[in-house]
Design a protein around this nucleic acid. Structure first.
Length: 260
DNA sequence: AACGATGTTCAGAG
DNA sequence: ACTCTGAACATCGT
């Protein structure tokens, strides 16, 4: 599930549950989910506390009382689950932290595309991994700087984490649907007005999704996301939606509504 | 039971 | 040096 709005929600959840408790254990079922040895994670975490969090796009940074920072990425299927130790460990809770209050945080990851890492500096990490500032904080001028000259399909540009950090497949589709721009249009052929519309819709989609806590069923009717699960016609034209591939990802388009 | 999936990364081409 | 494409990654649900 996790694109920017979901990860924002996960951040709030972790802030409410996990901060300022002493960590007494860490368990990892599959080493492929951690980018540093478990020994190193334990050195950083055991006996310490999580003190605060930051988020850039889909990346969550957890500050540790040691001064180190745990980087969490949820992949395609990750989510946190805070529960009491008397409850059975979740089936997909492949990484788990135990606190001294008897609660655990499970990092559930069904498809194992998520991971944890350790870093010293959010800013250094951001640059090394070519992340732009979070899509929510990006100004229109900054968006133009990184997007307007790109020669590839606008959808690819929106999904590029060095452009609009935090945007994933469904947000990109919804933004372009609401902006009435065909996802295959080359970014450098779009007018400033069209790019402004895309920028405005991007902010709108993110804010609505965050307000509604990323619960898709509650999204307004005009959101394309309803077409990913069930609805198969365009809300505006009534036409059947096309399912195409853009940048290797499944993409929904309303042909009359978003002309190429 | 083959295919697709809300993610990133990386090799290779241009 | 930069940009773009496509495949690989793991594995579950349909």
């Amino acid at each position: 599930m996790p694109e920017l709005p979901e990860v924002h929600g996960y951040q709030q959840y972790i802030n409410k549950t996990c901060l300022h408790h002493t960590i007494v254990e860490m368990d990892v079922r599959d080493d492929r989910l951690i980018k540093k040895p478990l020994k190193e994670f334990k050195e950083v975490l055991l006996g310490e506390q999580w003190t605060s969090t930051e988020r850039i796009g889909k990346y969550l940074f957890i500050h540790v009382s040691t001064g180190k920072i745990v980087v969490v990425h949820f992949g395609m299927t990750g989510r946190p689950n805070y529960y009491h130790e008397s409850i059975e460990r979740p089936r997909f809770g492949h990484i788990e932290i135990t606190f001294d209050n008897g609660y655990k945080i499970a990092f559930e990851n069904k498809r194992k595309f998520g991971w944890w890492d350790i870093t010293d500096s959010v800013e250094t990490y951001r640059k090394e991994h070519k992340l732009n500032r979070d899509a929510r904080e990006l100004t229109f001028e900054q968006f133009l700087d990184v997007a307007a000259h790109r020669k590839t399909a606008i959808k690819n540009v929106l999904m590029d984490q060095s452009v609009t950090t935090g945007v994933g497949n469904w947000i990109a589709d919804d933004v372009l649907y609401q902006a009435r721009i065909h996802p295959l249009k080359k970014a450098n052929t779009l007018t400033r007005t069209e790019l402004k519309t895309i920028y405005d819709k991007l902010q709108h989609v993110i804010e609505v999704a965050i307000d509604l806590e990323a619960q898709y069923k509650k999204f307004p009717e005009y959101f394309l996301i309803h077409n990913r699960k069930g609805r198969d016609y365009c809300y505006h034209t009534g036409d059947e939606l096309e399912k195409i591939k853009v940048g290797g990802r499944t993409t929904y388009v309303s042909p009359e509504w978003q002309k190429l």
